[in-house]
Design a protein around this nucleic acid. Structure first.
Lengths: 149, 149
DNA sequence: GTATAATTGAGATTTAATCTCAATTATTAG
DNA sequence: CTAATAATTGAGATTAAATCTCAATTATAC
């Protein structure tokens, strides 16, 4: 999804919700869409504090929620239980290394199909889902191996 | 796992970690193991505040972490992003109803096997994992249907 | 039993997130 | 376009969850 259509979608979302289209909201969406990979709300607050036309902390908190509701971003919890956001691109799951904290993304159609089947069996209508696998990534295992642990 | 062996395991864990075996710690484990289903830390704090020999809030927080590290309990996040604990019995995943907040447990060996395979493919050594499926449960769908929504 | 080290509790502190409300800005009606 | 109306913003206060502090207490090792 390119930026242009993201903004169009966001404006429509705001109107559908009866919310005003404000410079601050667009600014924050812009800052969010620029993020590469995973980010924390403090990253956005920092960016918004230091740009030409600053936006306050309170507004960032309020708007991040709106952007999340609009479906542009979602959050997971890091190994330290902190909120970590990411822009939703394709759907994927997460592996989280318990040693280095690295978050690895993966996707499996097989997994999608199986979860759908399980939901059918439980008469549960699935919306979204998330799979988190905690463990130790390849590079941390290599490091441990070197140290003979 | 019966209570007796849980306490034995807990005492061993404490000793292995170089921690003392205290009345407060045992009291809290006891309170935790009595919980049916999902509970919040405030449930334990409340229980510990009103028992014969009260235990402080600070100690409950400290000890819940220890009990979680010992592998007796784990936490997930509710739809309101609150920490919800549960005693670990058999391993299972969660379906969470976005309307009523109900948490449904399920287990699938097929899912376990598939996740193991995916980890192998990514050279990732899995420890634990969790799958959360958000959606609408059967009874909420029925209610919505009645209202013609 | 005594010495040493760990733990506890009460309340202070921290941190993330939310709230308040006057000033500002967007939207709507004319 | 302009005025009236309603929503939003920002600064700082507030809240709530969790952690920290340190003197008093308790467990452990000897």
């Amino acid at each position: 999804m390119n930026k242009e259509s993201a903004f169009r979608r966001f404006k429509n979302f705001l109107q559908d919700e009866g919310k005003n289209i404000t410079r601050e909201r667009l600014e924050i969406l812009d800052g969010v869409l620029e993020q590469k990979g995973h980010f924390k709300i403090e990253d956005i607050i920092g960016k918004m504090r230091t740009c030409k036309q600053p936006v306050s902390r309170a507004t960032v908190y309020r708007t991040i929620k709106t952007i999340e509701n609009a479906g542009f971003i979602k959050h997971i919890r890091s190994i330290h239980d902190e909120k970590v956001y990411e822009v939703i691109k394709g759907h994927h799951e997460h592996m989280i290394c318990e040693l280095c904290g690295k978050i690895i993304e993966f996707h499996s159609e097989e997994l999608e199909a199986l979860q759908q089947k399980i939901c059918d069996d439980h008469d549960f209508l699935p919306g979204s889902h998330s799979t988190k696998i905690f463990g130790i990534c390849a590079s941390c295992r290599k490091k441990s191996g070197e140290k003979g642990i």
